[in-house]
Each structure stands twice: as C-alpha cells, then as structure tokens.
Nucleic acid binder design. Sequence first.
RNA 1: GGGCGCAUAGCUCAGCGGGAGAGCACUCGCCUUACAAGCGAGGGGUCGCAGGUUCAAAUCCUGCUGCGCCCACCA
Length: 854
Amino acid sequence: MGVMTSEAHELRVPDRVTADGLEDKWVPRWERAGVYRFDRTRAREAIYAIDTPPPTVSGSLHVGHVFSYTHTDTIARYQRMRGRAVFYPMGWDDNGLPTERRVQNYFGVRCDPSLPYDPGFQPPPQPGKEVVACSRPNFIELCERLTEVDEQAFEDLWRRLGLSVDWSLTYQTIDENARAISQRAFLRNLDRGEAYQSDAPTLWDVTFQTAVAQAELEDRDRPAAYHHITFHGAADTRIPIATTRPELLPACVALVAHPDDERYVELFGSTVRSPLFNVAVPVLAHRLADPDKGFGIAMVCTFGDLTDVIWWRELDLATRTVVGRDGRLIAEPPPGLDDESGRAAYAHLAGATVHTARERIVGLLRESGDLQGEPEPIVHAVKFYEKGDRPLEIVSSRQWYVHNGGRDSDLRSALLDRGNQLSWHPEHMRSRYANWVNGLTGDWLISRQRFFGVPIPLWYPLNGEGEPQYNKPLVPDDAQLPVDPTSEAPPGYAEDQRGQADGFIADSDVMDTWATSSLTPQIASRWTVDDDLFQRVFPMDLRPQGHDIIRTWLFSTIVRAHLENGTLPWRHAALSGWILDPDRKKMSKSKGNVVTPMGLLERHGSDAVRYWAASGRPGVDTAFDEGQMKVGRRLAIKILNASRFVLGLGVADDSAAVTHALDRAMLAELAAVVENATNAFDSYDYTRALERTERFFWTFCDDYLELVKVRAYGEYGDDAANSARAALTLALSTMLRLFAPFMPFTTEEVWSWWRPGTVHRAPWPAVEELRAVCGNVDRRILSTAAEVIRTVRKSKSDAKLSMRAAVERLTVRGPHSSLVLFGEAQRDVQAAGHIGRIEIVPSRDDALTAEVSL
RNA sequence: GGGCGCAUAGCUCAGCGGGAGAGCACUCGCCUUACAAGCGAGGGGUCGCAGGUUCAAAUCCUGCUGCGCCCACCA
C-alpha cells in the first residue's frame, strides 16, 4: 500500500522542460477549476480568514506590493494545504484623496460642488492648461471610471503573480456595501456616544482644504528664520521676541514666558503693544514656555502651532484669525485690530499667501524699526499632511470625532490590552503600537471636507431663521444606507425643504478614508449584511500590512472592532518591511529607480520573483535584488529537471518497497525538514520554511540522486531499484508540496505530469507519513555517504579529471560505528564514484577518512 | 530627547551558549546517459568597539559607536 492515495494517472513527462509560459497556462485553469474558491459551508475552526490590505489603486504598481502580497500568499497557500477553507478576499482602496488627486491630474478637471450635474459631461480629451470645473456627481463618475481601469491593472498583476485570492470576494472601499457598512458603523458610534462633533482648532491642509488627523501628519525639515521683533511695554520698554512666523503678528493674542523666568516676572500681568498693529496683548506665565528657546518669551497667535492652541485654551485668550482656509490672509483685519495705522498695515497683507505676507511684513517691520538685525536662518521640522506639499495651518472648524482613547484613559488602557492580546509577527512591532496609543493627544478626527468618499450620513435641521441646529443631527433610516445626504432628504422631510427655513441642510463632509478602511474585516465578512458569513470568518485570523501604517490602519481597525464588536478584529498581525534599492535607500519614483513589477514577472517568471520576495523575513526591510530572482529562476528550472529525471526513473507509489537504509535515511532527513517547515509556517516564518526546503532539495539533487541513480536504473536488481524509486517518488511528492506555497506554477506543472488534481489542494506533508516509512534509521548514513563521495569528487577535481573518470581504489578508514554507516551505502558510493575497489580499514581515528587512488 | 530595530566573507543574509556558515560575486576544473541558463572543487571573515558573566561568548549582560525606522520638539 502506498502512503499516498493516488488514482491511476497517466504519466506525461515532457522531453524538455521550460520555466516559461507557466503563468499563462495555469492562471486560467486555476480560475476555471475554482482552486482558490472559499468554501463558506465550513465551520469557523476549519476556516482561515485573511484581512487583505486593499491597495490604493490610484497609486502606482510597485515591487513593494509584489513583495508583501507574496508573503501573505505563502501563508494562505500553506493554510489551504493544511485543510483550512481560506477566506482570502481582495479589496480596492479607491476611496478618498489619492483618487481625487489622480482624477484631477489625469483628466484636467476639478470638482466644484456648486455646479449642477451634467449628464453629458465629458472631460477634455487631453488634460489642458485650463482646468475644467465639473459637478460633484460628474467628478465622482470620473473617479469611478478611472479606478476601474486601475483595478484591472492590479488584478492582472496579482493573478500573474499567482496570488491565491478568491476573486469572487472582491470589494471596493467606495462600493455600495462598504459605504453602507461604513455609515452604519458611524451611526452606531454616534448612537453609543462614541462619535461627537466639536468646533475647535484643527490641523488644516490649505491645498486640499480639509482637516487632517493626527495619524496623517508627518514632519518635514524646512528652512525658516528667526525674526527678532520688538514689542513695546509701558514707559517705552522694548520686549524683543523671536518668531519664525512674523506674518502671524496681527494674530498675536499674548506673550508667554515660564513662571520661573526672572527676566519676565516683572511683566506678568502687564500689557504690551504689538509693533505695526499696536494691539494690546497680555504678558502671561505658563509652564510650557521654554526659557531656552528664542528669548524665552513666545508670541502666542491664532494659531501658529499646537502649543498656541494649548495656551489659547488654558489661558483663555482672545481669537484673532488671520489665515484663511485657502492659506491666504483673510480680507478683514481680525477683531481687536482697531488702530488706524495698524489697519493700514494689515491692508498690505490681506489676500496674500502666508509666504508673501511674511516677506511684506518683514519689510514693514524693517521700515518701522521693529525688526532687530537680520533674520537668522534655521532649519526646523514643520508639520505636513503626509500627502500634502504645503505646511499645515491651524483653523477653527466644526468636525466629527470618534473616541480612540486619546482623551479617555479607560479606553486607552483597553486598547493597549487589545494590542497585548494580538500576536505580532515579528514580535517587536508590538511596541510600536503601544508607543502610538500612549502618545495620542486627542480623539480621532474623521470628517474631511472632500468629495470622493463616504458621506457623513447626517443632516441638520434649520430653525425659523434658517440657522443650522448642529446639535440636533438628523439620522437616516438604516434601510436608506448608503445615503448621500446632499442628494437625498432626511426622514420626515421633503427635498424642497433643503436649505429652507425650518427645513434641513446636509452635512457635506465625507469620512476620512481610514474611517472606512478601519472596517475592512467587517466589510469583507459582510457584517450586518450576511450574518452567516460574518459568524464564520470574524474575528479573522490574519492582518498582513506594512509596519508604517500601524498607527493608522492597524490601530483604527482595532478601535472599530473594540467599540463595535467587543473583540480584536484578528488574532495575528504580520508586518512586512520596505523594499530598499541596492543603495539601501527606500525606492522612489523621483530617483528613477522604480522597476515595474509586470516587467519583472515577465523577465524572471513569477515563481522566481516570489522566491526573492519570500527571502524577505517578516518585518525586515529587504534590498531589491534581481540576483535573487535569478537564483529563484534557477531553482524553478532545477525543480523541473530533477522532477523529470525522478519520474523518468519510474514512479513507484509503494512505500513498503523502501527497504534500503540509504533511502530510509534520506526520508528521515526529509521528515525533519517537514517538521521544521511546518513549525516555521505555524509561527509565520515563511522564509525559514523555504530555506529548509531549498537546502534539502539541493543536497537531495547533488548527493542522494547521484548516489542512487545507478541503482534506480536497475543495475542491482528490481528490489534494489524499487526501493530507490519508491523513496524518490515519495520524496518528490513531499518536496513539491513543501515548495508549492512559494513556487505555485512550477510545482503545479510538475504535479500535473503524474498526479490528478492540483498540488494546491493536496494535503501538506505529514511528518508521521514519512516516519512510518523510514522507521528509526540512522540519518547519518546519507551524510556519511555524501562525505565520502565528496572526497572522491575532490580528488578528481584536483587532478583536473572528469567526474566520470574511474577510481582504481578507495580506502575508507574510521571507527567501527562509522564504517557500519558507510557500509549501508557502500555499493551506491562505488557506483556513483566509478570506483573499482573499496577497502575498509578499521582504525582508532575519531572520524572517517577516505583515500582515493586514481 | 524617548522608543524599537540592525551591525557576521566584496554583496545579500542565516546562525543566537560549545565546530564561523549559505547564496551571489571571484578562482580553478569538468560535455558527467535530468539539468552547460549545468556540474564539481577552491580562496576569502580577529562575527562594529570596550568591558563583564561562564570551564566555554558571534551567541547572554552592561556601556559606547555607527546606520535605519517610529514618536516628541519646532518662540
């Protein structure tokens, strides 16, 4: 009886093998056969669910994608072979700003929400200098049109790469189901008091004209300059302050110094006047003022930075807004700027960009004698929206927030606990999560003043005077979801009441893209839509993602599942590293070092590229290395050739025929490899699994195959040959399955030569199967024989002879125990080395030595 | 300033308490009835530095240096 159940299957081994064309052959066959189709009838314990990262389709295809998605795919394939029904969906993140920006550039249009829908609207054939304005619905149509094209390009790449995704489970973060779930989750947050609105200073991107959240900030070093400006105190005293933002002088509301700073103790409580504008501002004490910065006294403005906001709030200061939402100084001078010459000075600044206003005010200060010396250039870090290219301003606006522990220590510690309950791969990524949660300074700002996104599903009633009642939002019926409040009326109102007194207005904002992405486990598992599916796949098993978005995607997903489902969204998180170019720099388009992934797949073959990707361990930044792909390709070709050879020797599905000790030793070695690879996969270390398998495979080819091939030809009789053939058959079947998660095309090709069905649904090799065949044979029989044959090869190499050259005599010396091991393989060594005579000489040496006489 | 990670052959990396390793690159050789896009053999490293623990340290501990990432600061 064979260890493998196998029906009679025609053996079709090609005369010549090639690694080319396997993708075109197998991608459509897998699709037709439904090899990767999720079986939703299985019980939860028999399911492995993956929360696939939806790629931003408006971004460019990048080798980084190939890298990290391959990692996940090896895990998916392993779990499938372990008998799990793998829930492996694909999502497209086509929601939000990146899509808007790409549509603007691609078509040369911009969205003007005040325009009516034009059913016949067509963008210019070529994006021209003149940007064409269109309505919000027209703009959204263009977004949909372009994302469809982008998504197809991604899907083609993923299929060719061999991702074992179930394409029937595809979703978009902007599709109807995602919008409904996103809005439903928000409304439930609102209902439980976890979502709230607040009119407060907010970080604001002046280019995109939207609020942004803490998680979307990044610091960039920018040149700036300290300007030394004189304020005027009582009795002609002059108080110099240093600022990098002189243009905010008209927005100044106070000066602040540290309470213990003796230079300023006298001034606390007094009033000073600003230069040029002659506005009276108080001098106050606050612990956050740093005596070592500038002159130790800071100009507090509406608002220069986040510290200004703290001072404004804690010291109860006035508000003097000068920077508008478009990044220009607003037309009217701020309240309190009543002095006539001050208003004249302000008139020079009104309407100017921040940059221009700064130049102008420096000129004015110089003229008035209130600028001391020349500006002193420095470089300092400035906050930017990560997708923006102008520094953020801070403006006051009404926004929606969701609790995330930033202002609530109970929730914060609950979320820290969730991080501890999660399994992290690699483990040290856990601390990044804790760092972030501990550093939160406020709740999660989820509203964005943008167009292409999931609308905030609310309206506000208008009172008799037509004033919106923001504190009484109108909510849609659940059955209405997804809803667009700008084109649908709230329950109990008619459309013609929009904008009318006693009528309603829509909340025109959309949700932050993370507010939707944070629900990918719920969206993919169709929470509230398909309860049966949800129960089977949620919480999921695995979240694979980049380590750079722990603070955004990973954290926000945990927040949502914690608030909504009272659980972690998944058990494991696997973080992948970056791709670095050969100079160890992160790859970037601007440096021209980006390689198109499809070109790589075509040049090296998908399995070769996957091989390179799989050599990058979880969480480790990895160099882009086409050399590794060449190695992968060589491995693929070697697998094809070795398989052809093994199968050509004769298939023997009969484990009882494995009688030779050398054959059993090889299988014992293989059993250890299976054990290692299995353990490695179970701890998400796919790289180790590959390494162990590959190392075994090469020694299998170089040593074992060479040793037994003469015997397998039948030189020493049928029993001896059958033992080798049966061992080779079993080893090949096992190795193909070990390689299958990494090299799905090559292994499937070989599998099809002699096995029915697909290798990707074949059972993962079991250690017990192999151990049952090899018993407790001594594995050193193989390594001993290999060592001796290596000595023989070295002699021939040193003598510059062919490996086929005859050896007259081989003398093997060593302790009895080693000679016994060698004896088990002696005849195979003799045949493989073309050795005339072998002499065995017992000795008291510790190790075996071999002496070759040519 | 805080946190995390990394430092081993020319390159990419494995090893993480008892032999310093792999692949690539390099050198030499070989048509060998699976594979010349192959096969065989070989040279090459005081395991970042300094201490400590131990019979024994690339491996554990402490400090230092350099590189990277995250966070904070940004008058």
